Every structure is written in structure tokens, then in C-alpha cells.
Computed example of a mutant assay.
Amino acid sequence: MLRVPPLHFVLALCCLCPCQAAAHPHEFIDTQLTFRADGEGRLGEIDVVWVWDDLTSMLIIEDLRMDSDGNGELTGEEKQRLAAKFSQWPEGYGGDLYLSRDGSSVELRRPLDMKADYLKGQLVLTYLRALPERIPLDQTPVILQAYDPSYYAYYELSGIPEVRGRDGCRVSIVKADTGAAQKLYDQLLGQLTEEEMMEQGKYPEVGGAFADQVVLKCDAQR
């Protein structure tokens, strides 16, 4: 089963046909991330805020038949329906958020406390991802990336993520080599046939190469 980007899975839920991915992103999502530690200084949750670009926001609102009066605002009932719709993640969809430590992937649960709004023409989602097993924040870096493997959507980090509930931590951003990523995308795209792209919906899954890395490192607790 092919993975479905955010707009794709919403349209699929509405029984609409997803658009074909191309060699550049079609959705642009400002992304705010916050690390949350528990009382023992272990990483337990990551807060996520997605803010879509104006065009994609308008398409989603129209396709879901929201804002029926056209005043640019959603009713409380519409916000609840929108949040419920975005909580219905397809099987195998990882939420475009990837956490790793010591070179190994760290599991994240499906979204909790999903909230949705439509502010100044932009769709805004706020939710959290919990770790099934909390991990200690010590001198071993934790790496977090936000990306769509297909590169249909591009996640732009909104500032440097914060760390709450734990002192002695530093967050840095390692910028992606977009030139090298684009060359890789073009190379892999050239290896696909027209039938694979148009009929089978295949695409190069190199979105991670375009994504910045968020590196979290904390001092050892005394």
C-alpha cells in the first residue's frame, strides 16, 4: 500500500482522487515542534503544529465542505469534524515525523488531542505524538525530522524547537543539502517508467533528503 501525504489522505477520505506527485512539492506546511520531558527527564511527547499554505488550505476546506457561509471562519462543529477527519490516519502512515536515537528509529504513537482551526485563510492542526516507551535525554543525541517521503509536501520548520520539562538541553538544526537531494530525486525519477508513475502511482521516496535535522542533546543529569 502506498503511503498517502496529508492532503492525499484527506481527499481519499472524501472519496476524491489524489493528484499525481511531481518532482517538486505541492503543499507547504509550516511546522512547529516542541519536545516534552517527564518528571524524570525522559522524552515522553512531541507537540506538533501544522500550518498549511493558503492554496492547500482553501482546497481542503472546500473539499470537506467547510466554511459554508464563506466568512473565513469555522464553527465549533466544523472544527470538531475537521479534527476528527485528520485523526483518521491510513494504515501505515507515520505522520511525516521521524525520531531516531543511536541510529535506530524511535516509535511514535498516533495523534492525540487533535485540534483544528482555520485562521486567516490557513488550516492549522495542533496535536501531540507520544512515545510508547520514554527515552532518557542524556549525552546521546536525539534526531527528529519532519518530511513527506514522496516530497509531495514540504515541511518548513518554524524556528528552533523548544524543550520543556528538562534543563541542560540544546537544540540545533542541521540544514539539508537540497542540491544533492534534488539530484537524487531526479536520478530516481528517471528510472521510473510512465506506466509506473501514471498507473501505479510510484514515486521516488527521498523526502528525507530534503528535510533538515533537529538535533537534541542534553547534559547528563546529576
Rank of each mutant, 00 (worst) to 15 (best):
R3T: 15
V4Y: 13
V4H: 11
F9A: 14
V10K: 01
L11H: 15
C15F: 01
L16A: 09
A22Y: 03
P25K: 04
E27V: 15
F28A: 02
D30C: 01
Q32L: 12
Q32A: 09
L33E: 00
F35S: 02
E40Y: 09
I46R: 00
I46C: 01
D47G: 11
V48G: 05
W50Q: 00
W50P: 00
W52E: 02
W52T: 01
T56I: 01
L64Q: 05
R65E: 15
D67K: 06
D69E: 08
G70W: 01
G70D: 04
G70C: 03
N71E: 13
G72P: 00
L74E: 04
L74D: 03
G76Y: 13
G76A: 14
E77L: 06
K79D: 08
Q80M: 08
R81H: 14
A84P: 06
K85D: 11
F86T: 10
F86Y: 06
F86D: 08
S87A: 13
W89Y: 07
G92V: 07
G94A: 10
L97G: 03
L97P: 02
L99P: 00
S100F: 02
S100A: 08
R110T: 15
L112R: 04
A116T: 09
K120D: 12
G121D: 14
Q122V: 07
L125A: 06
T126H: 01
T126L: 00
Y127C: 07
L131R: 04
R134N: 09
D138G: 09
D138V: 13
Q139L: 12
Q139M: 12
T140H: 10
P141S: 05
I143Q: 08
Y151P: 02
Y152G: 08
Y154D: 07
Y155L: 08
S158D: 11
P161V: 10
P161F: 10
R164Q: 15
R164Y: 08
G165W: 07
R166P: 00
R166Q: 06
V174G: 05
V174M: 10
K175S: 11
T178E: 10
Q182M: 09
L184I: 13
D186L: 12
L188S: 13
L188N: 09
L189E: 13
Q191L: 13
T193L: 04
E195V: 10
E199A: 03
Q200N: 06
K202W: 14
Y203V: 15
G207E: 09
G207W: 04
G208Y: 08
A209P: 00
K217Q: 10
C218S: 00
D219R: 12
A220N: 15
A220Y: 11
